[in-house]
């Protein structure tokens, strides 16, 4: 897959629906993930964006980085906004108020907007069966407000509201499994993706949009600011998350699990953890605990792929 990545970038769509000049931090993996996802959009795509980093860095008055129709309303309601857009497109096409041009709806939010405050609206939208793709750009904390922990923050990570200390290992809970929650709605398509595997990411976005009904894609997005990692390591870190099994890439199509990448052997989690300041305080015991959990989780997903 990595070789594949080397030789076909020239085949990637040249269009940039997400324009340069946005105000994302230096080396922002989430901005890259958004940029890549946008490249996979069909021409008629409307985006609904939750409050968060991407909204702030892309739409500061009076400028916009968006070259597709884009709406931001609030933090927790983006799946509901997208539901309304989708319903309107359907009703208006049927009533002849707007051409039936196959316009697609993509909703997007961060891990806070998705797995915490926006979970209810997302669950509603998935359950009701709207034809939309929801993408969670997961940088594993509330980065826009200053690196506070979310339910997507990994075990052991030090954030401003889960700081490490004499009596704290940092985040005390294991990362919420959003892909499994989405899949529990029995929707036709769920996938995980990483900006470090652009072709895989773009193929999944295209598939998620094309599939009739709701689709959910969870994209791990490296945040140098919040992870306290070197900006130039964003791609490497995304790759290491996958190669260590910390963030496995897979698809769930009509309930069928499929690994996106065959890994003969998982790398040790230290390879991933050691490059990030947020894990710097971890003891060997804690790292061992993480290692065991990662392997067990990875095996669990692999088993599902039958």
């Amino acid at each position: 897959m990595q070789n594949y990545t080397v030789f076909v970038p020239r085949l990637v769509p040249k269009k940039e629906p997400f324009a340069p000049g946005h105000r994302a931090c230096i080396g922002c993996g989430e901005a890259l993930a958004v940029r890549l996802a946008c490249k996979a959009f069909p021409p008629n795509t409307i985006v609904a964006n939750a409050t968060g980093c991407m909204e702030v860095i892309s739409s500061q008055y009076p400028m916009t980085a968006w070259r597709v129709p884009w709406i931001h309303v609030l933090f927790e309601n983006t799946a509901a906004i997208a539901s309304g857009i989708e319903a309107a497109l359907k009703a208006m096409a049927r009533k002849g108020l707007r051409p039936d041009d196959g316009t697609k709806v993509v909703a997007m939010g961060g891990d806070g907007g998705t797995s915490d405050i926006g979970l209810q609206a997302l669950s509603g939208a998935l359950e009701r069966g709207h034809d939309l793709l929801y993408i969670c750009f997961d940088n594993e904390a509330y980065m826009n407000t200053g690196i506070q922990r979310s339910s997507a923050t990994p075990f052991g990570a030090s954030t401003t509201t889960s700081p490490s200390g004499i009596k704290s290992i940092g985040q005390k809970t294991w990362k919420k499994n959003m892909a499994a929650i989405a899949a529990a709605h029995d929707i036709p398509y769920v996938a995980t993706a990483s900006h470090s595997y652009p072709h895989d990411l773009m193929a999944k976005v295209a598939k998620g949009i094309a599939v009739p009904g709701p689709a959910y894609i969870h994209i791990l997005s490296v945040c140098p600011t919040g992870w306290r990692s070197a900006p130039d390591l964003s791609i490497r870190l995304g790759r290491l998350a996958v190669e260590t099994g910390v963030f496995p890439l897979y698809e769930i199509e009509d309930g069928e699990y499929k690994m996106s990448l065959e890994l003969p052997k998982l790398r040790p989690v230290e390879d991933y953890l050691n490059l990030q300041g947020r894990f710097r305080h971890l003891s060997e015991d804690t790292i061992k605990e993480i290692q065991e959990r990662v392997v067990a989780e990875y095996e669990r997903i692999k088993e599902k792929t039958g």
């Binding site: 324009a19 340069p20 000049g21 105000r23 739409s59 009076p62 400028m63 916009t64 968006w66 070259r67």
Partner: peptide, 24 residues
């Protein structure tokens, strides 16, 4: 420079991709 009278309906932007003018 914008006055309140010059703001578009709902403060909507009608020109796409204008951050391209912004030097980062």
């Amino acid at each position: 420079e914008l006055t309140w009278r010059e703001i578009e309906v709902g403060a909507i932007f009608t020109v796409p991709g204008t951050t391209a003018d912004y030097q980062t």
